[in-house]
Amino acid sequence: MLVTTTPTVQGHEITKYLGVVCGEVVIGAHLGKDILASLTNLVGGRSEAYESTLRETRDDAMAEMMDEAKKLGANAIVGTKFDYTVIGQSGSMMMVAVSGTAVTLT
């Protein structure tokens, strides 16, 4: 399934708008990753532990959104947006939400 952040797809015509589709995934903090991230903060650099978790979470949210679009009969999603939010007591969880418009293209 084609997923794009743009409102149209060059070379294709949108024949039907099927509605807004979403995917949300909430992840909790993990003590081991927090320790690794703390060490990274001390010496500098990127936190691979958090980055890989964030990538997995984003991919899961996208898969959820695409499944919803397929159920509507879509072959593409346009206008896709991502939102990352820290939630829970003392920011112990993060939510990744993705949404877009399910469409059919020619």
Rank of each mutant, 00 (worst) to 15 (best):
L2P: 02
V3R: 01
V3K: 00
V3F: 00
T5V: 02
T6Q: 06
T6P: 00
Q10Y: 05
G11C: 03
G11D: 09
E13M: 03
I14G: 02
I14W: 01
T15M: 04
K16T: 10
K16M: 04
L18Y: 02
G19S: 02
G19W: 07
V20W: 03
C22S: 15
G23I: 12
V25H: 02
V26K: 09
V26C: 08
G28I: 07
A29D: 09
A29K: 10
H30G: 04
L31T: 13
L31N: 14
G32K: 10
L36T: 12
L36H: 10
L36W: 05
L39E: 15
L39P: 00
T40L: 01
N41G: 14
L42F: 07
G44E: 02
R46Q: 09
A49W: 11
Y50R: 09
Y50G: 14
E51S: 12
S52C: 02
T53Y: 11
T53I: 15
T53V: 12
R55S: 11
T57E: 04
R58H: 11
R58D: 03
D60A: 15
A63W: 05
M65H: 11
M65S: 08
A69M: 07
K71Q: 11
I77L: 11
F82Y: 14
F82P: 03
F82I: 11
D83L: 13
T85N: 12
T85F: 04
I87P: 05
Q89H: 09
S92A: 10
A97S: 10
V98S: 03
T106H: 04
T106P: 00
T106D: 12
